[in-house]
Amino acid sequence: MERPNIPPDSTERTILTAANYVFTAVFALEMFVKVVAKGLWYGKHAYFKNGWNIMDGSLVFVSMVDFMLSFIAFGSPRIFAILRVFRLLRSLRPLRVINRAPGLKLVVQTLLSSLRPIGNIVLICCTFFIIFGILGVQLFKGKLFYCDGPDVESVKNKTDCLADPRNQWINRKYNFDNLGQALMSLFVVASKDGWVEIMYTGLDAVDVDQQVS
């Protein structure tokens, strides 16, 4: 809700500042009560032995630092750059809702537990991408260049193209001249609508320094 162009003395800014102080106090009080009831480090149910409590504690710490920097900033304008960073971290506060909603918490835990098998699948996909990227470099390296100019109907190769100073011998945006470009082209082929153009360009490729047919 907070907009950077709100005047400092406006009603909206005053309400947002007051709400920030209230939420900071409530979150800090909640953390204090939990630490007193469960303990900080020691004990079976200690506060910092639960990952969700660690997240809540981190957000409370960020809010407290932001609270202190807000007062320091009035006397030191240089502190505003650091203050902006901590105000950006306040956007993580909605994550506290996850700990309060059992259904949402279960979904997040399921997603986190699936990261490991997803990582294995991504590794296999990357392996195949590299294999086909190397194959693409072997087959199409330097073969996707074309002549761009006002009259290119009779152009057959790079020499014919550059014979006219108005022409340019340029490469396709997606090509296979190196492994990096090949992987980018394969990613476009696998995920975007531009794969048809890349396919027809590969079909029309002739040879190195030859105009595509």
Rank of each mutant, 00 (worst) to 15 (best):
F176G: 00
N99C: 04
C125Q: 09
G133T: 03
N5H: 08
C147Q: 04
D204V: 00
R84L: 04
Q109Y: 10
G180S: 11
L95W: 14
A205H: 03
M199T: 12
G103M: 08
C126A: 12
T24K: 09
L92P: 04
P4G: 05
S113D: 11
N20T: 11
S91P: 01
V62H: 02
D193H: 05
L112T: 01
L123C: 05
G136F: 06
W52A: 03
Q210W: 04
C161N: 09
G103A: 10
R96S: 03
T159Y: 12
F48V: 11
A101V: 13
P7H: 10
V137R: 07
L162R: 03
F71N: 05
G142C: 07
I121Q: 13
F176E: 02
G136Q: 05
P102K: 06
N20M: 07
F67A: 10
D160P: 14
G136L: 04
E30A: 06
I72G: 02
A73H: 09
R90G: 10
V36L: 11
Y200T: 14
F32L: 13
L135V: 13
L89A: 07
I82P: 09
V208W: 08
Q210L: 01
L59R: 00
N20V: 01
L203T: 06
D204G: 09
R166I: 01
S76W: 15
T201L: 11
I121F: 14
T11C: 06
A19F: 11
Y21P: 02
V122Q: 02
L83N: 14
M184R: 15
V62I: 12
K141F: 03
Y42S: 15
L135H: 13
G39L: 05
R100F: 09
Q210G: 01
M68E: 01
D148C: 01
L29W: 09
K105T: 00
Y146Q: 08
F176T: 01
F187C: 05
V122K: 00
T159V: 11
K158D: 06
G51W: 11
E30G: 07
W195G: 03
F86G: 01
S58V: 12
N178K: 03
L186A: 03
Y42M: 12
V155R: 01
L186S: 10
F187T: 14
G119L: 04
D66K: 05
K49V: 00
T24S: 14
R93I: 14
L40S: 14
K34Y: 03
